[in-house]
Design a protein around this nucleic acid. Sequence first.
DNA 1: TCCTAAGCGAGACGGTACGTCTTGTCTTCCA
DNA 2: TGGAAGACAAGACGTACCGTCTCGCTTAGGA
Lengths: 185, 185, 185, 185
Amino acid sequence: MEVQPLDRRVQRTRAALAQALLELASERPFADLTVRELTDRADIGYATFFRHYPNKEALLLDVLSGIVDDLTTLLEPMADAGRLDDAGRELFEYVAAHAARLRVLLAVEHGSAVEHALRAAVRARVLASGTFRPPEGVPEDLAAHHLSVSSLALVTWWLEHQMPYDARQMGAIYARLVVRPTRDR
Amino acid sequence: MEVQPLDRRVQRTRAALAQALLELASERPFADLTVRELTDRADIGYATFFRHYPNKEALLLDVLSGIVDDLTTLLEPMADAGRLDDAGRELFEYVAAHAARLRVLLAVEHGSAVEHALRAAVRARVLASGTFRPPEGVPEDLAAHHLSVSSLALVTWWLEHQMPYDARQMGAIYARLVVRPTRDR
Amino acid sequence: MEVQPLDRRVQRTRAALAQALLELASERPFADLTVRELTDRADIGYATFFRHYPNKEALLLDVLSGIVDDLTTLLEPMADAGRLDDAGRELFEYVAAHAARLRVLLAVEHGSAVEHALRAAVRARVLASGTFRPPEGVPEDLAAHHLSVSSLALVTWWLEHQMPYDARQMGAIYARLVVRPTRDR
Amino acid sequence: MEVQPLDRRVQRTRAALAQALLELASERPFADLTVRELTDRADIGYATFFRHYPNKEALLLDVLSGIVDDLTTLLEPMADAGRLDDAGRELFEYVAAHAARLRVLLAVEHGSAVEHALRAAVRARVLASGTFRPPEGVPEDLAAHHLSVSSLALVTWWLEHQMPYDARQMGAIYARLVVRPTRDR
DNA sequence: TCCTAAGCGAGACGGTACGTCTTGTCTTCCA
DNA sequence: TGGAAGACAAGACGTACCGTCTCGCTTAGGA
C-alpha cells in the first residue's frame, strides 16, 4: 500500500527491471532467466534487485498486476447479459493492443504463478458480479472456473498462432465456445 | 522402445523412484522436490538417478505416460458422435479410479511439462480421429485446443474439490459446457 | 594535526563514535564489528561515519592515539639507566589506571594495526632516546624490537589474567625478563 | 584424526589449495585474499573449497599445522637445560630452511589465528615439558607466555630483515635476550 | 559352476545461481 | 549550508542443487 510517491530513483530502478524482464522473457522462457541477467540488462546492481523484490517471481507479479486488473475488468461482462459478441470483440481488441506484453506473460510456462493469479482474479470477479447465472445443474463455482480457464486458453492460442483471425471473429468464436455454454439460456 | 526385458534390478529401481515421486509430490509441489530427496526416499544412490533419467521432469513424464495414454483414449470419443453423456461418465469414472495418482500429476503446478504433454497428446488424437467436426466458423485446431484445455480444467477442478458430484453428473456437465459447444450441432 | 578547535558537533560525533567503539569492542572482537553497528550504537548516520574516518581502523587509531603517546613515554625510560624497577612499576600503574580502555585496544586480535602502530612508536622512541645501549653482539634495532614486543606482551598477559600481581611485582618481573637483558650490563 | 588414507583426489585438492595459498599469500596480505582467488589459482571449483574448509582461515591453519608441530618441538628444549646456544642455532637453522613458508605464515598480519595458535602450542609444550624452571618470583605461566611471544618476535624480525645474521649468531642473541632470562639461574 | 559384464552405492568434483552482507559513494531532503 | 537518511554499485560470502565422473562391490545370467 505505497501511498506517498516513492523516491524517483526507486521508480526508475523498478521501471528498468520491468523493461528488462519483458525483453528477456520474450527471448527465453521466464524460468530460465537469472537475477543476474535481469540486473545486467537493467543496468543496476545485483544486490539492488533484492531490495525491491524477494525473487524474480515477485517482479513478474508486479509487472503483471496492471494487466490482471485490465483483463478481469474485460472478462467480467462475460458473465453479464446481452452484447456478448461486442464484449468478446473488446476483449480481443485489448489483447491485440497489448500483444507484446501479454505474449510474454502468458508464455510464462502456461500455468505457474501468473496463470494462477489471473484465474483466481477472474473467478473472484465473475462470482462477485452478481449477474452470473450458469445453466441448470452446473455449479456456479465450476462454471466460473471453466470460464476463466477457457478464456485464457483462447487468448493464449490466438497469441501463439500470430492472431490469424481478427478480433471480431475471435469474439464470435469465444461467445460460441465459451461464454454462451456457461449461461443459463 | 525397450523390447528386451530390462534387468529386474532396473525395474525395481524405477519403481522405487516412481513411488518416491508420488509420495513426495503429494506432500509438496513437484517443482520444489530435489533429486536428492527422490533418491533418499527411494533408497537408491544419488548418481543412480541419472543413469535412468536425465532430470526429474523425465521421471515425471515416465510415470505419467500410462495415464496420458489412458486419458487420450478416453477423450477421443468426445470428438465423435452420440453417447456423449456415457463417454463423459466413463471419463470421470476413470479419473475417480485413479484419483490419487491424477491428483499428484495434475497438481504439478497446472501447466509445466505435464499439462503441456497431455494437451498435445489429446489434441493430436482428437485431430487424428477424423470424426471431429467443430461448428461452422470455428477452426478445427482451435476447437481441439479448447477441448483439451477445458477437459483437463474440469477434471482438475473436480479432483481439487474432493469430487463433490458423481461421475454421471460430471459427465453431463462436461457434455454441456465443453463437448457439445465444440461440435457441429 | 588538527589545530583550530573543531566544530563542537564534530567533536560530539567523534566522541560518540569513540564511545561506541569501546563498548562494542569490549563485547566482540574488533574485527567483527561493522560500520553499521558503530553508527547505530553512536546514533549517527551511516554515511556520516565516512566523513570523519575512511574506515573503522582509522577510528581505532584515533581513539588509540592518546594511549600510544602515554605508553611510549612510559616505555622510553626503559632504555635508560637506573631506577628500572620504579619505571616498571609506573608502567604497570598506568596500565592499571587505564585497564578498561587498554584491554579493548590490546585485545584487538594481538597484532593488526594497533599492535603494529604501538610497536613502531615504541621502537622509534627508544632508538631516538640516545641512551639505549644493548649488550655486546645484539643489534640495536633487534633489541628495540624485542623490547617493544615483550613489553606489550607482558602488559597484555597481565590484563588478560585479571592483573593477579600488583604493579610493583610486575615492574620487578618486567625488569628481570625484559629490560635488563636488553641492556649492556 | 584422519587415520585411513584419504581419497587420493582429496589429497590432490588440498595440496593444490595449500600451494595456491602459499603463492598468493606471498604476493598480497592473507586477509585480502578471496576464496575465489584461491580456487582459481588451485584450479578447483569454487564450491569444492567449502567441502574441505569452512573458510580460508581453516585452510591456513591446516597448512600451518605441520610447521606448528616442528616449531613447538624446536622450542621445547629452550625450557630445558644446557646447550642453549646449540638449541637456538638449530631453531634458526630450521627457520632458514623453511624461510619461504614461514615468511608467509608469520606475515599473516602478526597476530590473528596463526600467531595465537602458535603461541598456545608453544606455551602448552613448554609447560608440559616438566623441566621448565623460571627464576624466583616469575610465575611459570607468565614466563612461558613471554618465551613464546619473544621467540616468535625474534624469528619474525629475522625473516623480515632478510636474515642479516647467521643462525649461530641469532642463536646466541636469542639465548641472551630470551632464553636465559626465563631460566632459574 | 564359474566369470564377466551390468547395475549400483558412495561420494568427490566443476559449475552455477541464490540471497545475504558489508563497504564506500552519491544524492536528496531537511533544519 | 551542512548533516541525516538511505538508495545504490560492487563484489565476497557460504549454501544449495545439478549433472558428471570415478571407484569398487555385488549380482545377475550366459558360458
